[in-house]
Amino acid sequence: MTKQSRQEMTEKTPSIYPVKTKLQITIIFFIVIGFYLFSMFWTQREMVGGFGNALGNMYVVIEKFFPPNLEVIPKVWGEMAQTIQMAIIATTLAAILTVPLALLSAQNITTFKPLYLITRTFLNILRTIPDLVLAVIFVGLFGVGLLPGILALFIFSLGILAKLISETIESVDMNPLEAMRASGGNVFQVIYFGLVPQVLPQFTSFVLYVFEINIRASVVLGLVGAGGIGLVLDQQLGFYNYPNAMAIIILIFIVVIVIEFISNKLREALI
């Protein structure tokens, strides 16, 4: 196709796409652009001075936030550690509880259809609720502290993890499992000797991935009172103490990058 000079080809050969497809694409393109312009207009309608003014303000922000007051970092180290601990506990709990849920929502293991459908729907609904909303509800229930944060992270990551792992379970090689069943293995034996060895590396990798997500989520949970570094950040922002806030943001940034790097290396080694 690319052997002739391009101009010659584009002039002489008919277009590879039919007119109808082209028309469809054009219409979709204009709808998308139109909706985009509308949403830009809508989201800016409450803004004083519009976009141009905002760009000018961008410079003010840099002035406000910089230079960050790095002296606060040693003082918030304890909160940062708590944030990481929150993520560790939540991930561990989710990793344990996800096993029965993932098994129940895998079509090839749970052959009883209604049970599979119920777990699936439950997990789908669970996943649609944002982590911060869960945190808001748990803070209302348990009061300000670490516990609501841990619970919010736990439930949020349970939804993701169970989905990822049930998909892995559905894609395993069923032949060894059938052979085991045929030679008289019971359900638990089949799962333990046939399924676990096939799923384990993926499982560990997904748990680490969810841990990364949890670290990222846990740093902001404090904004709604669910403990950790976000609580300090929220206070500093409330005092309009922007250099301190920037120092905390930089700390969060570094911690997230370091943990992601370690977790990535571990995952590469696993698979």
């Binding site: 800016q44 803004m47 406000k64």
Partner: peptide, 23 residues
């Protein structure tokens, strides 16, 4: 590495508390 909410905090300070900061 920046969580969305942290970015939103920065942009809220920049363009004020409105939907465009979210965008």
């Amino acid at each position: 590495a920046f969580p969305d909410i942290i970015l939103a905090i920065l942009f809220v300070v920049a363009v004020g508390p409105n939907a465009f900061a979210g965008v």
